[in-house]
């Protein structure tokens, strides 16, 4: 009886010791390392945080992710990239979700950076990276893209795999920063 009481007390204590945080930092000094660039990937099959630890393990191993969060009801994993490190591409994110045991679906990015033009094509260069990505379409823009060149903008975009080491951006919105 005594054993049962001790066990029950232990379980109750653990149950009640609820902590709360909006995102989980997975690198030391994450607050100063968090960049502005984020990715959101919908992963079907996510049903509990413990089961989804497999994702966190891959994020840690990549060395590119400062923090992440999950909205289980929407099935969306939010990834906050480390400042100055290359972004994880949509193909890498899909592979991680698959290897962890889930099914990757839509992936979107929220990126801060500049519009560039190279060889007649518009590209987006996220701040703090050496990467530039082509657009699938710029039809969302109501202004001439030339006017945005060199300005810092926040880009919300869908992304799909493109060639070996790139991704194709399909913008949802552009917001110019001051």
């Amino acid at each position: 009886m005594k054993k049962v009481t001790i066990l029950s007390s232990l379980l109750l204590t653990i149950t009640l010791s609820v902590s709360h945080a909006w995102s989980k930092d997975i690198v030391q000094d994450a607050q100063s390392l968090k960049g502005d660039n984020k990715a959101y990937i919908r992963a079907d099959g996510l049903a509990c945080y413990f089961c989804a630890y497999g994702l966190e393990r891959f994020f840690r191993r990549s060395g590119k992710v400062a923090a992440y969060d999950m909205d289980m009801k929407k099935g969306v994993v939010e990834i906050i990239f480390i400042k100055g490190k290359p972004l994880m591409l949509v193909g890498e994110l899909h592979q991680i979700v698959y290897d962890a045991g889930y099914t990757p679906r839509e992936t979107t990015y929220e990126l801060v950076g500049q519009l560039e033009k190279s060889e007649g094509k518009y590209l987006f260069h996220p701040d703090g990276t050496e990467q530039s990505f082509p657009f699938k379409s710029l039809s969302i823009l109501t202004t001439d893209p030339k006017k945005l060149i060199g300005k810092t903008v926040t880009l919300k975009t869908k992304a799909e795999k493109y060639k070996e080491n790139s991704m194709l951006l399909d913008p949802v919105s552009f917001t110019a920063k001051n």
């Binding site: 902590s19 709360h20 509990c48 945080y49 289980m72």
Partner: peptide, 12 residues
């Protein structure tokens, strides 16, 4: 699962 919490909440 009686209650779905956030990422770092205790899950029962």
């Amino acid at each position: 699962r009686p209650r779905l919490g956030a990422l770092e909440d205790t899950d029962t």
